[in-house]
């Protein structure tokens, strides 16, 4: 049972680390956005402090949209996804393993670089901590939602912007709570309520999103 999870997980990680250039792309994109913003809006420390959390979150979301294709597309194109689905193993675990691997590859680097971004955008220590925690809880939600969107559109030859459009409505509440958490931190208030809401959204998604993804993949395989 867990062997399946680890098997798929290890395979996906190995595949991801074989294409190191592609691995670094979303991260570079994130750095570019973070560098461009102060130049566009002006280097005033106050304004950077105010818009910083939002900029980092939006950049993280956009970067994740870049790396979303890796979830299922290649496995779908070379047929290995179909093989896995026909293997008779529980698909929930399979999908969960793929999502976990995707999250590790896509977002752990982002999380590790968040302190750097916080310094670049003049965040105070409490703000940086709140930002880090909101990203820690929120990015798995991004991966889970990306899995549904990619599962639905993997069979569409010219998907293009479709997965992003599908993800957008679900992302907006996340963004609202995440940025309001950092805002509360900036004002010296408690930000646990916002984090609790993000955590709740994450747990609901963790329970339901893999099921939806499995169904979506089954529909796409026809």
């Amino acid at each position: 049972m867990t062997t399946l999870f680890y098997g798929v997980f290890k395979r996906d990680l190995a595949l991801a680390f074989r294409q190191k250039a592609e691995l670094a792309q979303p991260l570079l994109f994130l750095l570019i956005v973070i560098t461009l913003f102060p130049i566009a809006v002006g280097p005033g420390p106050d304004i950077l402090q105010r818009i910083g959390p939002g900029v980092i979150w939006v950049a993280a979301i956009l970067a994740s949209l870049l790396g979303m294709d890796r979830l299922f597309k290649e496995d779908f194109n070379d047929g290995s996804l179909e093989q896995m689905m026909l293997s008779g193993h529980p698909l929930y675990q399979l999908v969960l393993a793929k999502i976990t691997a995707h999250w590790l590859v896509c977002f752990i680097p982002v999380l590790l670089l968040t302190p750097l971004f916080s310094i670049l955008l003049n965040q105070t220590l409490t703000m940086a901590v709140a930002l880090f925690l909101s990203l820690l809880l929120g990015t798995p939600l991004l991966s889970l939602m990306a899995a549904i969107a990619m599962g639905l559109t993997v069979g569409v030859p010219k998907g293009g912007l479709l997965p992003s459009l599908l993800m957008l409505p679900v992302l907006i509440p996340l963004l609202i709570f995440a940025t309001s958490a950092v805002e509360s931190a900036a004002m010296g208030l408690s930000y646990t309520p916002q984090l609790a809401v993000i955590g709740a959204m994450f747990l609901v998604a963790l329970a339901l999103a893999p099921l939806a993804t499995v169904y979506a993949l089954k529909v796409s395989q026809h």
Binding site: T153, L162, L165, P169, A212, V219, S220
Partner: peptide
């Protein structure tokens, strides 16, 4: 609507768009 229109096979399109509607 966009997801439904993206599929050529309307049976498949219905199911995919249905999942999306429920997620929403």
């Amino acid at each position: 609507i966009a997801l439904y229109c993206a599929f050529d096979d309307k049976q498949q399109a219905g199911k995919a768009a249905g999942v999306m509607a429920l997620v929403g």
